[in-house]
């Protein structure tokens, strides 16, 4: 009867072990990509990676913390504008000025959270959207940054940008192409850093608490999880990364306007589709989602508004018939977890 039972707790799965090796190889490949890829591929990869970063942030909010924000464009926009402000007013180099975007977004997130956390459910969604509109309209009043029509990064700022010289000489490229390489590397670092950060958070004690809150708010409170504090941490962190991403995106475009930088469709709408189609509440989902999103965009590029129409239909269909997204379908079929979070008890007799 009283067999001694030893056990250990694991989150690793065999798939995740193999995936880790594959991922490491993939990362090395990704870092080396500029050595053999053309400019247009790098530009595409830049878009994919920055959308992936935004998607991971929104997924953290909506999929794990239950904060369904429709106002993430506020942080993209403010991050982008802060980067521009750093360059134009204080003469910063655009690359470090990107971090300024993260700071500005985090600062904006504080009053936003203070206000929006008083609202429940749908009110939260609408509230965040209205705040983003307020920020957009206010920024449009900022005349020295071009007001409603926007402005461009000064030519000397982009031409003397940090790291561009060494990259140019390393690969033997012109400056413009070297800037694409730089933007690509930064986007890669940001996306990988975000995924790593989200994964670390979810595996930590706080992450477990977050999942507990998502699954059962009352029970979580009963065992002493402070849901409100977790929400604050997640909201501000997601805003900061979103802001950095905004700064990076507009470093690459080098031209900004309030309507573009605060576009609800581009920075929240598409992001929501990416997360939902890929699979909300998983780290794998947004990765899969961004690939599908981009493939569709390419496939339907010649069909104008049909592209968005089909995207909308796919989004609706996934939500209705496969609410856990494509990754949910794959996971149910195969049981694969690339980023295992659930702890499993391994009992040895």
């Amino acid at each position: 009867m009283a067999n001694p039972v030893s056990y250990r707790v694991e989150t690793r799965t065999r798939a995740s072990g193999r995936a880790a090796i594959a991922a490491a190889a993939l990362v090395v490949l990704a870092i080396g990509l500029p050595a053999f890829a053309g400019r247009s591929l790098l530009q595409d990869m830049f878009v994919i990676l920055s959308m992936l970063t935004l998607a991971q942030c929104w997924n953290l909010l909506a999929g794990y913390a239950g904060l369904v924000s429709v106002g993430q464009q506020a942080f993209v926009g403010i991050g982008a504008y802060a980067m521009f402000a750093g360059v134009i007013f204080w003469g910063w180099d655009p690359v470090p000025a990107i971090l300024l975007g993260g700071v500005a977004a985090a600062v904006l997130a504080i009053p936003t959270a203070f206000f929006a956390f008083r609202l429940a459910g749908a009110y939260f969604a609408i509230g965040t959207w209205v705040i983003a509109e307020v920020v957009r309209l206010s920024v449009a009043q900022w005349k020295s940054l071009g007001g409603g029509t926007g402005t461009s990064l000064p030519r000397e700022a982009t031409s003397d940008m940090m790291f561009v010289e060494p990259i140019a000489s390393l690969f033997g490229l012109r400056d413009a192409a070297a800037r694409d390489v730089l933007a690509y590397w930064l986007a890669l670092a940001l996306a990988l850093g975000t995924i790593a950060g989200v994964y670390a958070l979810l595996r930590s004690r706080q992450g477990l608490a977050l999942a507990a809150v998502r699954d059962n708010r009352v029970a979580a409170r009963a065992v002493g999880v402070d849901a409100q504090r977790m929400n604050w941490v997640v909201f501000v962190a997601a805003a900061a990364i979103t802001g950095i991403c905004g700064g990076l995106i507009y470093m690459q475009t080098a031209r900004i306007s309030p309507d573009a930088a605060f576009a609800v469709l581009d920075w929240t709408g598409y992001v929501i589709f990416i997360v939902v189609i890929g699979g909300i509440g998983t780290i794998e989902g947004p990765i899969l989602g961004v690939i599908v999103f981009f493939a569709l965009q390419r496939l339907l590029a010649d069909y104008g508004s049909w592209y968005l129409l089909i995207l909308g239909v796919i989004g609706i269909a996934v939500m209705l018939f496969a609410p856990r997204g494509l990754w949910g379908l794959i996971h149910d079929r195969t049981g694969i977890d690339l980023f295992p979070i659930r702890r499993r008890l391994i009992i040895k007799k």
Binding site: A62, V68, L265, G269, F273, V276, S305, G315, M319, L320
Partner: peptide, 22 residues
């Protein structure tokens, strides 16, 4: 769960807009 109605009607919004554009 408020997510399904939000997402589905958001999808619908995009479908209607683009159908009207067409």
């Amino acid at each position: 769960d408020i997510l399904p109605p939000l997402l589905v009607t958001f999808g619908l919004s995009i479908v209607i807009q683009n159908a009207l554009l067409e």
